[in-house]
Amino acid sequence: MNLDIRYPLGWIFVAFGVVLGLYGLETIHNGMYAASMNLNLNLIWGVVMLGFGASMLFLARRAS
């Protein structure tokens, strides 16, 4: 198939990662993180998702 699945997969994780990460930065002193055991899940998980998305894009690029 001519469309490598790793492109859409990579881009959606990059998009989610950026949105979550920026929102996490903006709410860094917000009390709402008491719910998640005082972990800023948005920032942490945003970075993880961004990393996963970027590596998918890198792999897709290397293959083409």
Binding site: V19, Y23, S36, W45
Partner: peptide, 11 residues
């Protein structure tokens, strides 16, 4: 709903 604040709740 219990553990996720806004943001990751959307995820």
């Amino acid at each position: 709903l219990h553990f996720f604040p806004s943001g990751i709740l959307g995820l």
